[in-house]
Design a binder for these strands. Structure first.
Lengths: 195, 195
DNA sequence: GCATTTCTGGCAGTTAATGCCAAGTAGGCG
DNA sequence: CGCCTACTTGGCATTAACTGCCAGAAATGC
């Protein structure tokens, strides 16, 4: 622990986060101002912006860390595993590493119901996608080769995220009563199984 | 023509649009302010915001109309056509109905190079997706039925858009030298063909 | 032409976000 | 323990995207 600084900072961050999520749930995202959050969490507006660069980061801020985890997990899957299975393994790890399901559900609903938040969330996801493409391309048997391997990798990654997104949205609308991994498998099956 | 108002409005809108795209290309999206666009297009800032609700709409504003067209086209495909083929037909129509390829290329580059624009663009597209889901669900043979038809439809639509997005990005990075429809087919093949 | 409708422009205000500087606080060192 | 340095915090000013309001101009209908 590099110091007391870091600890009190953690405390402040947590207080801000709790206040923000509570206020967002109570009054909606757009109706809640940064000033109000800062006041109730007892920090200055200026510090709040130092901890969280933007208002949106209050909701989808810790995505960065998850993206790193996802990438590392996919990289570390055995080489003979298919791109699809490796990505699915990464997805699985993220699920277990996520927030307590109670809060995850609340955050998901907030994100899917608030256009500006949804956009920012997608933006972060696009960054993950870009980082995953080289990892997936390395895993593709460069045998067939008619579709350039880059095209293949991009399409696969984009599709997986589309399915994750779809599954998450369904999961949120069903109040978390259906298993998220099951929903993901159903989505992928709908796409990949030829009837 | 309901009036002279409508015509001069169209002129103003076009002037704003041209100015905006030119400035965005010259200096980048974030570095261009609304004030500058309004000044150079010779309209007041206030009117600019009346024509285009947000800065982002200057770039991806006319998506609404395309979404309508897409939906209608997909609906009108013969009933025995598969969901995949119907969506592909809709995509084809949009391609031809789009801007002159010169400007389309410029806009695509802008969107894919500017994270916040890209996110907003996808968000608008998500609205199309939601509208297409019932259309696609109606087209699914409700035979198999283990994955709820709604899940199936959502996943298929999301995947098709993911492939459109990927194809468009590749098309823009190749300066439009590769046929967009070909790229789309390659993306879909990478996803659907089991090797 | 004149009243009415509709649009435009300017102005003030709100909110998110950033830079700057002064003041405070923790950590290391004699 | 006291002091100096490094880092952090908070307040202030500023910018940029937007919104509401109102007065005035322009177009329309009679």
């Amino acid at each position: 622990m590099t110091t007391l600084w870091e600890r009190s900072r953690q405390v402040a961050v947590q207080a801000i986060l709790d206040t923000a999520v509570r206020l967002f749930a109570e009054q909606g995202y757009e109706q809640t101002t940064i000033a109000q959050i800062a006041r109730e969490a007892e920090v200055s507006q200026r510090s709040l912006f130092r901890y969280f660069g933007t208002k949106e980061d209050l909701v989808c801020g810790d995505q960065e860390a998850l993206g790193e985890l996802l990438k590392r997990t996919v990289e570390q899957q055995p080489a003979e595993m298919s791109a699809w299975d490796a990505l699915r393994a990464g997805f699985e790890v993220i699920l277990t590493a996520n927030h307590p399901p109670e809060r995850a559900l609340e955050l998901s609903r907030l994100i899917f119901d608030t256009p500006s938040l949804h956009a920012r969330y997608i933006e972060k996801r696009l960054r993950w996608q870009a980082e995953l493409v080289p990892v997936i391309r390395a895993r593709l048997g460069n045998g067939s080769g008619r579709p350039a391997p880059d095209t293949q990798a991009k399409a696969i990654v984009a599709t997986v995220f589309a399915c994750i997104d779809t599954a998450t949205e369904l999961w949120a609308t069903h109040d978390g009563r259906i298993d998220l991994a099951d929903l993901y498998d159903q989505c992928l099956a709908a796409v990949r199984d030829h009837s």
